[in-house]
């Protein structure tokens, strides 16, 4: 596995579109999404339910539901390879190996009738051609790496014998077993309690420092993004509407949607018990997206142009882009 490209971004997504079949015909869940993830970088993909963030992740993994969903266009280059042109066999070799994924609900990612350790060992045998004994020993050390106490005993536990936090650690152990270059984590802490969430975030951070892996973190939680990410992509109704380094995004967001999201979160000192600034209305359903700017109907800056001219993702500053005809210029704007 030696000759991977070492220059250029690890992951390059270009104009990726995905469609799902709905009762009303094909609907575009992901609409010409482009972004990159550099080696060792953590990129946050933020948005609300139905914005296309999970569909993007599934497309990257080649795991869109068969028949119901498909990639409708674009390119995904991972480590120099064009993913969409790979054979299913080559993709399987990459998945769980160079490219791994952690899902929101660890119970559904684990086989309930197989002991936890065996599920990790299986990955090692499949991709690393290890003997049973070597794979099992490596599994115990992986359990230790992800902070599972008494790893030599826990490897023999079935998933239902483990707590939610421990299950997620097992899933992470499985994901990092083959030292992937990219870990896609889809809401990895959403199902967990806040003290356990803090432990898992800490684990991801330390894994990254130790192994230099890249992380694409998919979440709706801006707090998690602020803690873990270097760069952020904000998605709304199928499109990326803003991308920026994490500091710039929180300090000087430019897209009215990002501004609204950040404002609507209760914060200490923002005047407790006063009204929270709302974003009016609801996310448009996938089958009835506006023709112009997707956010136009909920935006307080909307002008006629927004209704019929779809805005482009324009560069507004160093590594900062927003899809808006009238981007916000200052916090008071």
């Amino acid at each position: 596995m030696g000759d991977h490209e070492t220059s250029g971004p690890l992951l390059e997504v270009e104009d990726l579109s995905c469609e799902f079949l709905t009762e009303a015909g094909p609907a575009r869940a992901v609409d010409e999404v482009s972004f990159t993830v550099a080696r060792g970088e953590t990129v946050g993909l933020v948005g609300e339910s139905g914005c296309g963030k999970s569909a993007t992740a599934l497309a990257l993994m080649g795991l869109l539901p068969h028949r119901a969903g498909r990639v409708a266009g674009g390119a995904i280059r991972f480590d120099g390879e064009e993913m969409l042109r790979l054979s299913e066999k080559r993709r399987r070799d990459l998945r769980g190996n160079r490219l791994a994924m952690v899902f929101q609900e660890p119970m559904t990612a684990l086989n309930p009738v197989m002991v936890a350790g065996e599920q990790v060992a299986e990955v090692l045998r499949r991709h690393r051609d290890m003997s049973r004994k070597a794979a099992w020993e490596k599994t115990v050390s992986l359990f230790e790496d992800v902070g599972i106490p008494a790893p030599a005993q826990r490897v023999r536990d079935y998933p239902h014998q483990l707590s939610g936090g421990m299950r997620q650690r097992v899933v992470i152990a499985m994901a990092i077993a083959c030292e992937p270059a990219l870990l896609i984590a889809d809401e990895p802490t959403t199902a967990l309690d806040v003290t356990i969430q803090a432990q898992i975030l800490e684990l991801l951070r330390s894994l990254q420092l130790r192994t230099g892996l890249s992380i694409l973190l998919i979440t709706h939680d801006l707090g998690v993004v602020a803690q873990l990410c270097d760069r952020v992509l904000v998605m709304y109704a199928g499109q990326i509407v803003e991308t920026a380094p994490v500091g710039a995004l929180f300090e000087a967001p430019r897209h009215p949607y990002t501004v609204g999201l950040l404002r609507s979160m209760p914060r200490p000192g923002s005047g407790d018990r006063t009204r929270l600034p709302e974003i009016p209305g609801n996310v448009p359903p996938i089958t009835a997206r506006p023709t112009g700017c997707h956010f136009a109907d909920r935006c307080d800056r909307t002008k006629a142009r927004c209704q019929d001219h779809p805005p482009l993702l324009d560069a507004l500053g160093p590594d900062h882009h927003a899809r808006c005809h009238f981007p916000v210029t200052s916090p008071q704007d």
Binding site: G165, A198, Q199, R205, G223, C229, L249
Partner: peptide
């Protein structure tokens, strides 16, 4: 344990165990 909305806020000591 509540993730801060300030990017780059130092990681504080975590509660261990469950």
């Amino acid at each position: 344990a509540l993730p801060s909305l300030e990017p780059g806020a130092p990681a504080t000591d975590r509660l261990t165990g469950e």
